[in-house]
Design a protein around this nucleic acid. Structure first.
Length: 720
RNA sequence: GGCCGUUUAGCUCAGCUGGUUAGAGCACCCCGCUUACAUCGGGGAGGUCGGGGGUUCGAGUCCCUCAGCGGCCACCA
C-alpha cells in the first residue's frame, strides 16, 4: 500500500468494478424492501456544474440503504429541458451568425437533438466520475419515445376529464424569446417608474374621472374605467361613459370589487388585452378586448398613429400627447415590481393568447391532504408550510410553449366550421397516435398545434413515466392503468425519497405530486428532501461575471471525488445553502488520506511477521473493550442521524470518531500491540475498521473501497 | 404588505428533543520529519453564542420584543 491515497490510481478501476459487479442494478426482489430515488434529471444542455454535485445527498442515501439490505434503485436520466435548452442553443446559433429563421422546424429539432445528445454523453461520464451509484442500465431521457407516449396518455386523460382546456387568456409573454410562460417562471424585479394620473372626460361633459396608471400606453386599448362599488366618490358615475383621451372611443364606467379604493385615485383604467387583472374584470362585465401591442412587442394597427413603436417609445409618445392635450394631471415617481423573463430579463408583456391550461384546483385538492397528514414528509419541515402556501395560490397552469424544442402537443384542430360537435371544443381534439380524421366530424382537414409542452409538464411526470416505461420494457400500452398493473411498477412506485433543490419546490415538486396523484392515484414519493444552493467560500452566489465559479470536475481531478463530495457535506446543514471552498476540499482530501492510512497501519500490522512479545494484556483488553463500546455508540448515533436525513451530523460524527478517537487515541494506545502483531487486537481493529468503512463509504466511496480492496481483496459490498 | 430563514472563535459554519469547563474546518502561535499518515503528530491562543426582556433549578438551545443580513410569496393599477 502506498503512503498516500492516490485517487487517480483507483477511481476508474473502482467505477468499473461497481459496473461489472452490478451492485446497483435493481431488480424486483420480493424478499427485500425497495429503496428508490429518481435522479432529478439534469438539463442536457451543458456540463455538470457544482450544483449537480449535490446529487451526493442521494448517493449517500442509496449506498447507506444498500448496506442496510434494501433493494436500492437510483434511476438516472436527462431532461431535454425545453426552453432552457432552446435558450442555450439559440445563443450558440447566434455565435455562429445564424438564426432559427434560417431552418425549418424539423431541421432545427434535429440540430438541437444532436446538440443535446452530445451533452448527455458528457454528463453521464461526469456523473460516473463523481462516484454516483446510479443504475445506468435503466437510464431514461425525457424525449424517449416510450416516455413521450406516457406524457401523451397523461395529457389525454387530463383532456378527457376536462382538466386541461384550451383558453384565450392573458398570458406572460416574452417578446424577445417569443414564447409564453407559466406564472411560476416570471421573475419580478423592482423598477423605478412613474405613476401617471390621467383625466378621462365624461361623455355628458359633466366633468372627468381621474385614473392612475403605471402603463399609460395601454390606455389606447382601454374598454372601461372601473371603480369600487362601495366608493361613495364615484357611485353616481357608475353606468356613465367617458371619452377615451387621444382615441375618442366611448367606454363605460363600471363597478368591480377588485378595485382598491385606497390606491391612486380609486379609479382604474381597464385594458383587458394587456393585464390579467383587467382581463378578469372584463370577463365579469363582458367587456370587449382591444389588443394594441403585438407579440413582437410593438404597437399594432389598433394603436392608431403609434403603430410600429416599441413599448417604451409608445409610452413616451402617449405621455407626451396626453401632456400636450391637457389630459395629464400628474406624474409621480413610483417604484413597483415588474415581471421579467427569468432567462433573458426582458419585461414580460401580458398578452391575450390561446393556450392549453391545466386546471389546478382539482389537482391541488388531492395533494394538500397528503402534506397536511404527513403522508408525504418534507425535510426540512419549514418547506411544508411554504409548499402549502403556494398550492393555495396557484392559478391554472399554462403548458403551451412557442418553441420547437420539446414534446409537441398532441392536440389537433379540425378546420371544418359549422359542425356542432366540432364547435363545442372549437374543433380541438387530442390524439395519442397521429390521427387520420377528426373524431367529431370525420373530416381529414385538421392540423396539429405548433406548440410544445412546458418542460415541467413532462418532468412533472418523471417518477411514474420512467418507472412505467421500464416496467413495460419500452412497449407502448393503451392506458396508464395498464402500466400501473405491471409488477415492476408496483414494486418500485411510489419512490422513497425525492431529493432536490428547494428552488424548484413549486415548479417541480408540486407538479410531480399533482400529476402523480392524478395519473397513478398514488403519491410519487413518500419523502421530499431539499438542499440549498452551492455558494463560494464567502457565501456569494457563483457567477461567471464574478469569476467565482467552481468546476466540480476540476476539483475531482485535483483532489479526488471523495474530497469534493465530503466538502459538500462537512459542517453544513441540510436544506441551507452550502459554502464551497478549495480549502474545504483540501481538508477532506486530507481526511480521505487519514482513512487510508489507518487501513495501511492495520494492514502493515497484519502482515508483520515479527514475534509477539509478552504484554500487559489486561490493560489492552480494557482499551479494546472501550473501543468497541464507543464504536457501537457511534453506530447508533450514525443511523439515528441518517434516519432523520441529517446527513451532515452522521458524517461529522464519523469524521470525529475516525480521526480524533480511532486514529489519535486508540491507535496510539494500541500501537505497540499492532507492531507486535497481537492477533486479538488486530482482529478487533479490523472488525471495527471495516465496519467503519461501510459507514464512510456513502460519503467517500473511493478511498473506502480502495482500502478494503487492498486489505481484504474484495469490495465493501461483498462484506456482510 | 405577508411568510420563512439567518445573526455562535479572525474567516466559513455545526450544535438533534434545554443539562457537566460551547465545537469543527481553515487561518494563527510554539514544539516535533518518532517504523500508518508532515495531506502528519503534540501543545496553545482566540467566543459576555446580534441587543433587550421573560420561562426554568438550569438556555446558544423555549417564549416575547427590537435590529442587521438573506430568501420566497402578493393582481394595489
Amino acid at each position: 500500500m502506498d503512503k498516500k491515497f492516490k485517487p487517480k490510481d483507483w477511481e476508474d478501476k473502482i467505477i468499473k468494478l461497481w459496473e461489472e459487479k452490478k451492485y446497483f442494478q435493481a431488480k424486483v426482489n420480493k424478499d427485500k424492501e425497495p429503496f428508490v430515488i429518481i435522479l432529478p434529471p439534469p438539463n442536457a444542455n451543458g456540463s455538470l456544474h457544482v450544483g449537480h454535485a449535490m446529487y451526493v445527498y442521494e448517493d449517500i442515501l442509496i449506498r447507506y440503504n444498500k448496506f442496510n439490505g434494501r433493494e436500492v434503485l437510483w434511476l438516472p436520466g436527462e431532461d431535454h429541458a425545453g426552453f432552457e435548452t432552446w435558450y442555450v442553443f439559440e445563443k450558440e446559433l447566434k455565435k455562429q451568425g445564424k438564426s432559427k429563421l434560417d431552418f425549418d422546424r424539423d431541421v432545427l429539432y434535429q440540430m438541437v437533438y444532436d446538440f443535446v445528445n452530445e451533452k448527455r454523453g458528457i454528463m453521464r461520464n461526469q456523473l460516473k466520475r463523481l462516484g454516483f451509484a446510479l443504475d445506468w442500465s435503466k437510464s431514461k431521457f425525457t424525449l424517449d419515445e416510450d416516455i413521450v407516449h406516457i406524457v401523451y396518455l397523461t395529457f389525454k386523460k387530463l383532456f378527457d376529464q376536462g382538466l386541461v382546456y384550451r383558453g384565450l387568456r392573458v398570458v406572460n409573454f416574452c417578446v424577445s424569446c417569443q414564447t409564453s410562460f407559466s406564472d411560476l417562471e416570471v421573475e419580478y424585479q423592482e423598477e423605478k417608474s412613474k405613476l401617471w394620473t390621467i383625466k378621462y372626460l365624461l361623455s355628458d361633459k359633466s366633468g372627468y374621472i381621474a385614473v392612475a396608471t403605471t402603463r399609460p400606453e395601454t390606455m389606447i386599448g382601454d374598454t372601461a374605467v372601473a371603480v369600487n362599488p362601495d366608493d361613495s366618490r364615484y357611485k353616481k358615475l357608475i353606468g356613465k361613459t367617458v371619452k377615451l383621451p387621444l382615441v375618442g372611443r366611448e367606454i363605460p364606467i363600471i363597478a368591480d370589487s377588485a378595485v382598491d379604493p385606497n390606491f391612486g385615485t380609486g379609479a382604474v383604467k381597464v385594458t383587458p388585452a394587456h393585464s390579467d387583472v383587467d382581463w378578469q374584470i372584463a370577463q365579469r362585465h363582458k367587456l370587449p378586448l382591444v389588443q394594441i401591442i403585438d407579440f413582437d412587442g410593438r404597437a399594432n394597427e389598433n394603436a392608431l398613429s403609434y403603430k410600429g413603436l416599441s413599448v417604451s417609445e409608445f409610452r413616451t409618445a402617449v405621455v407626451s400627447d396626453l401632456k400636450k392635450k391637457g389630459y395629464l394631471i400628474s406624474e409621480k415617481d413610483y417604484t413597483h415590481r415588474v415581471g421579467k423573463c427569468y432567462k433573458c430579463k426582458t419585461t414580460i408583456e401580458p398578452l391575450a393568447k390561446e393556450q392549453w391550461f391545466v386546471k389546478i384546483k382539482p389537482l391541488v385538492d388531492r395533494v394538500k391532504p397528503l402534506l397536511e397528514k404527513d403522508k408525504v414528509k418534507i425535510y426540512p419541515k419549514r418547506f411544508k408550510t411554504q409548499l402549502l402556501n403556494w398550492l393555495d395560490k396557484l392559478y391554472d397552469w399554462n403548458i403551451s410553449r412557442q418553441i420547437v424544442w420539446g414534446i409537441r402537443i398532441p392536440a389537433y384542430q379540425c378546420q371544418v366550421k359549422g359542425n356542432q360537435e366540432c364547435q363545442q371544443k372549437d374543433g380541438w381534439f387530442v390524439s395519442i397516435e397521429t390521427p387520420s380524421q377528426c373524431p367529431y366530424c370525420s373530416s381529414s382537414d385538421f392540423s396539429q398545434d405548433e406548440d410544445t409542452f412546458d418542460t415541467w409538464f413532462s418532468s412533472g411526470q418523471w417518477p411514474y413515466a420512467t418507472l412505467m416505461s421500464l416496467a413495460s420494457e419500452g412497449k407502448n400500452l393503451q392506458s396508464l392503468d395498464e402500466y400501473k398493473r405491471l409488477s415492476f411498477f408496483q414494486y418500485f412506485y411510489p419512490t422513497t425519497v425525492m431529493e432536490t433543490g428547494f428552488d424548484i419546490l413549486s415548479r417541480w415538486v408540486s407538479r410531480m405530486l399533482m400529476l402523480g396523484l392524478f395519473s397513478v392515484g398514488k403519491t410519487p414519493f413518500y419523502n421530499v428532501l431539499l438542499h440549498g444552493l452551492v455558494r463560494d467560500q464567502y457565501g456569494q452566489k457563483m457567477s461567471k461575471s464574478k469569476g467565482n465559479v467552481i468546476d466540480p470536475l476540476e476539483l475531482v481531478d485535483k483532489y479526488g471525488a471523495d474530497a469534493l463530495r465530503a466538502a459538500l457535506i462537512f459542517n453544513t446543514k441540510v436544506g441551507s445553502d452550502v459554502n464551497m471552498s478549495e480549502d474545504k476540499v483540501v481538508a477532506m482530501r486530507n481526511f480521505a488520506n487519514k482513512v487510508w492510512n489507518i487501513g495501511r497501519f492495520i494492514y502493515l500490522g497484519l502482515n508483520n511477521d515479527k514475534e509477539a512479545d509478552s504484554f500487559e494484556t489486561d490493560s489492552l483488553d480494557d482499551i479494546v473493550e472501550n473501543l468497541h463500546k464507543e464504536f457501537q455508540d457511534l453506530k447508533k448515533k450514525y443511523s439515528d442521524s441518517l434516519k432523520k436525513y441529517n446527513l451532515t451530523m452522521a458524517f461529522d460524527l464519523l469524521y470525529d470518531f475516525t480521526w480524533h478517537r480511532l486514529a489519535d487515541y486508540y491507535l496510539e494506545k494500541l500501537k505497540d500491540a499492532v507492531w507486535q502483531g497481537d492477533e486479538k487486537v488486530l482482529a478487533s481493529l479490523k472488525t471495527v475498521y471495516l465496519s467503519l468503512l461501510q459507514m464512510l463509504n456513502p460519503y467517500m466511496p473511493f478511498v473506502t473501497e480502495a482500502v478494503c480492496l487492498s486489505i481484504e481483496n474484495r469490495s465493501l459490498y461483498d462484506i456482510d
